[in-house]
Structures are given as C-alpha cells and as structure tokens.
Design a binder for these strands. Structure first.
Lengths: 344, 344
DNA sequence: TTGTACGCGTTATCAG
DNA sequence: CTGATAACGCGTACAA
C-alpha cells in the first residue's frame, strides 16, 4: 500500500545510461572539465537530462564534508528592516549559488542558539547573524561557545551590527549616523529634544541614543528627554503617548528607528498633535515601505540590501585570520517632518 | 598548512565515550525511548553533551532518505506581503522542527524553476510556492514538470494563491474579497470608480479586478476605468499619475494591493489632490507596516501570517490522494480613505 | 583519460 | 535490549 515512488535516479543510473563508470560521471559534473573527454562528458549530460537526474545534495555534502548552505538568522523576518537585509543576502547568495536557510528568532535569544546548533548540524558553510546583540551575559557566553563550536567545525560566522565577538562583522555606524542627525536637526534650529529610545539592553538602540546625545552636546543643545519603549511600532506609539503631556516643551523627537517613529506619528495623530507644526519627528533606517508616510519622515538611511550582500561577501572572501570589519555609514535624509524652524 | 580543524565528533565517538555500540547510541537519540535502557540512554546523552556532539544532518538525510527541510519560494522577500507570509511559515515550521530554505525569485519565472530543482536536490521534504502564478504557458508547463518530478521523488508541494495545478493549495479569495469591497464602497455612496490593476498576466491581480467589477455590476454601478501598472509602489504611482487628468470624473479608486495604493497616494499628493476629499482610495492586503498612513487606508485584510502557517499545516497533514484546498477569506476594513459620501 | 574501491556518518535490518 | 553490519549516493585517492 505504501505507494513508494520510483527509486530516485542516482548518479549510478546516469553512468550506466551513458555507458561510463560512476567516477567518470561524477567527474563530468564537478571535476575540472579537462579531465574527461568531451565526447563522454556530453554523453553523461545527455543521460542526466534524459533521466531527469538531480544530484543528491546530502550525499554530496557527506562526501565533500561541506555544503553550500548558509544560514541567515534574523530577529523577525516580517520586520522590514530584516526583510530588506534578507533580500540583499538572497541576491548575493543567488549569484554565488548558495542556498539560504532562514531563522527567525522573534527576539528570543535561546532561539538564536538553537538555530546555531541546527545550522551546525546541517553543516552549513556559514551563518549570518543579523540583529543587534542584547546585553545579556548569560546568552552572550552561550553564543560565544556556539560560534566557536561552529567555526571549529569549519564554518564561517558573520555578524551584522555591532559586535563584541571575534568574528567578521558588518558594522553599522549607528552612533555616527545618529550624531550626524542631531547635528543636522540642531542646524535646522531645533533646540529641545526628546528621544524615543529602544530597550536599554539592545546595543543598536543604545548606540543610536548615545550618538544622538553626543551630537546634541557638540551642538550646544541641552540633553534630551529620554523615554524607553519596545523597538516596534507599538513601542513607539506607547513611548510617544507617555511623552505627550510634556510635548509642549519640546521642539523635536527622535525615534531610534522608523517603525517606532511611525508609531509615534500615530500617537500624535490620535491625540490631536499636528506634525510637523506642533512637533518635529525623525527616525532611523529609511525603511522603503515607510517613505510615503505624511509628513515624509526625516531619517538616517541605511543601505539595508547592501548590508545583506556585504555579509555574504565576507563569507566568500574568508581569507583567514583576523576578524574583519566592513563599516557601513548612514546618510541623513531630511524630509518634511523636520522643516527648518522659522526665526531660527 | 591547511589548518584543518579537529575532526568533528561523530556518533561513533559518542558511542565509544559512553561505552556502547554505535547502534545503541543512535537509538538513544531517535529510537522509541523504550528500546534502550534508561541507564545507557543517560550515558549516551552525557557523552554527547560532554563531546558537544551535533548530529550530522546530511548523513541522517542519506540514511533516512529524507530531510526536515522545507523550501519557501517567494517573489520578493523584501515585499511585506511575502515577508509576512514567511513569518507565518517560520512560526509554524519552528513548532514542528522544520528548517526553512528560502528562495526569492524577483519575479523571474526561471528562477522559480531553478529553486525547485535545487530543493529537489536537497531532498527537501516539501516546497511552498507563494505568489501568484503568471499566465505564461511556457513556464507553466515547465513548472508542472518540476512539481511532478519533485512529488515523484517523495516531496510535497503546496501553493499559496490560486492554482491551476493539481497540488494542495491555500486559496486566497481575492475575487470574493474585491467583490465585497466594491459592494461596501457602493454602499458608502460611491458611483464612478477606477481600478489601478496589476499586470494582466498576474492571476492575483486579475482576480481582484474581476471581483471588483463583479461587485460593481451587482451594485448597479457603471464599469470602472481600468489602468494597468506594476504590482509595486512605483507601479501604483505611475498608474495613478496616468489617471490624474480624468480624476475629476471619479469618486473612488481601487488599487489592487496596498503597496500600489500607497504609491497612488503619493501621486495624488504630488499633484495636489487631497484624499479623501477629492478622491477616495482603497487597497488590498492590509499590510501591517502601512496601517499608519494618512488617510488610513480602506482595504481587504488577508491574514498573511495565518496563510503561511496554513501552508505548513498542509504539508504536515499530507494524507494522500486528492489535492486539498484551504480557503482563506478576506475581510473588508473600512477606514478614513473612503468616508461615507455626503448626500448619498 | 578512465575505472575500482574505499570512506563519509547515520539509520535500519538482522542476529544474538 | 543490544551489537554487528549492510545500505544510502557521492567524491576521490589509487591503480590501470
């Protein structure tokens, strides 16, 4: 009853069909082209086509000891920040004939470890870890161990975002970007700021806050009011709501990412505050999907797709010893949500 | 010089360390728990932990003849429609201990075929094909062949969106949803409509257009003006721009997805048209990231994450014979972009 | 240039 | 309940 499909066609079948040995058939596919006579090569290819042969990747993986799979672990694939990075990874992976296995942790550090372990089991050639590290020492140590184990088994590890780990990293200049934003906003005449910061333990959020503060100091502005909130739309909404009672004493608000900024916009709207007349607002990332909100959001653009590609490049150019860093700058984009203040 | 890392620890190593045979060690992990004495089982586990053992998935795949990998092929992972579906797939996959290999075709049908072939090579347990089929007979046949080959090699195939293929499908009721939207808008007092339709050959776009037209007929409204455009933000922008000269003769515009609708909003803004006073606008999908645009967009909500999960469920409940269909309804969500017309 | 034969790490069958 | 041992499909020394 078990309706077992026909036995899958193997390289052996192809070899038989072509009238050559298994070894020759194998070489026809991957051996340096010169090693097998063109006539035989063609025969093998024809046979493969005729039989609709598809190489058994797990078997190849076993024989070769490695795969062409790379793991991509993100916090949340539905978040446009990560999905854009993923798009860049996919584009670059495709160019280099790599398969991508996806992990989405929903920000649970233990899931990150589990994916790492699973990817090690798959003998992935590399894993790209995207998303800010959390300052959680318990998981930090465990992660370090996992990374070490993975590398010892011959895999490469690339991190996206700041790192405190000795691996190749695509470093996002969050701090410099936020600082440049603060400078730009000060230049537009804003004076009294608030920051909708992310969670305290998220490095990306911390760096953006720190950079912004830094920029304000340099510009001779008073320190900003800081409200924490989740790194999400709703987090921005709540933080802004919390801020509203004191909003009249503020000129501008910096939400540490665009998604939070949009939540903040919604909060303002719901409470009768008009942007940018009553308050200016800026974000960070320049998420493509959010470029059409009104008023258009001032932000710091990160080339998210390029970041994903850069991570793949780091994998492929794995030369050897010292951990490398590819630094990615942010670009301040001034839009309607932060008009020049009159009577500056 | 080749700095070969230490040989990875195998199940054999674990068996030795635990003082049992290879077979027993294997059973300790996957054999039904009862088959191995608890004491030995524990020994094996301890040894594995001590040696930091990680099962070699490709080897398991070879021995078992199958993997726990499922492929997810989408048009563009950066598109929020697909990234939301992906999130649902990931959530459900995680629950069932499946790994997900991602494919992003950038809407090139030949890439879809290539991913299929690669996933067959990986011996994926299943592949989920998300995204509307294109009416391209050349690729249609090729796709049918690939699917057949994949299924014959023991894999499952699930499609998301309408299908014309004999496989399990998560059917999205685009037609019914668009029809309901037309009915609702007519009920609000709108009379003269235009539709920003997607490409002619995209089934999803066609169905939404057809359903909308259908609804208008039922409501006794005149046929809408139809403008085609890409299924993207820019496509919506361009189509709306094209429509502008005749906008004064219109009451409402239906963009066949939210992303296009947002492009249309931008076009209106850029050309001095105020929504919803000058024109009403509706979309389709209810993309989360776009819920905060102004005016808030009337749309037809699809439960995108649930759709992804449903696809995984279809894989796991693969009972056997006839292709099944899981139908997913859309829900009309009326928002500020389509206020009730005064003096209806 | 081609063929033979072994090994990769597991699972599963078959004896004990 | 446990232990040998034969597959699984492929790559690759080694031999011819």
């Amino acid at each position: 009853m078990a309706e077992n499909g026909p036995a899958p066609v193997t390289l052996m079948d192809v070899a038989n069909e072509a009238g050559v040995s298994l070894a020759t058939a194998s070489r026809a596919f991957n051996g340096s082209t010169r090693n097998v006579r063109e006539a035989l090569r063609q025969k093998v290819f024809d046979a493969a086509l005729k039989l609709n042969y598809s190489a058994n990747a797990p078997a190849q993986a076993m024989a070769r000891g490695r795969t062409n799979v790379v793991g991509l672990v993100v916090h949340d694939i539905a978040d446009p920040y990560f999905s854009s990075i993923a798009a860049g990874v996919m584009r670059s992976a495709e160019e280099h004939h790599l398969m991508v296995t996806l992990g989405s942790t929903l920000r649970r550090p233990e899931r990150e470890l589990e994916y790492f372990s699973a990817l090690r089991g798959q003998r992935s050639r590399a894993v790209i870890l995207a998303g800010s590290r959390v300052k959680d020492f318990q998981y930090f140590d465990a992660l370090r161990d996992q990374i070490q184990a993975f590398e010892q088994s011959g895999g490469r590890v690339v991190m996206i975002s700041q790192h405190k780990l000795a691996v190749d990293t695509v470093v996002l200049e969050n701090r410099a970007g936020a600082k440049a934003l603060a400078t730009a906003l000060s230049g537009l005449g804003y004076r009294r700021f608030a920051v909708l910061a992310g969670p305290r333990d998220l490095l990306t959020a911390r760096d953006r806050l720190a950079g912004f503060k830094d920029g304000l100091v340099r510009a001779g502005r008073p320190a900003p009011l800081v409200i924490e909130g989740d790194f999400t739309r709703d987090g921005g909404y709540r933080a802004m709501t919390e801020l509203l009672p004191t909003a009249r004493n503020l000129d501008a608000v910096f939400a540490v990412n665009d998604v939070m900024a949009v939540g903040a916009m919604a909060a303002c709207r719901d409470h009768g505050l008009t942007l940018p007349q009553d308050l200016a607002l800026a974000g960070f990332d320049d998420i493509a999907t959010l470029r059409d909100v009104t008023p258009a959001l001032t932000t710091v653009r990160l080339p998210l797709e390029a970041i994903g590609s850069a991570a793949v490049d780091l994998i492929l150019t794995a030369d050897g010893q010292p951990p490398r860093q590819k630094r990615i700058k942010g670009e301040v984009i001034l839009r309607a949500s932060t008009p020049r203040r009159r009577g500056r």
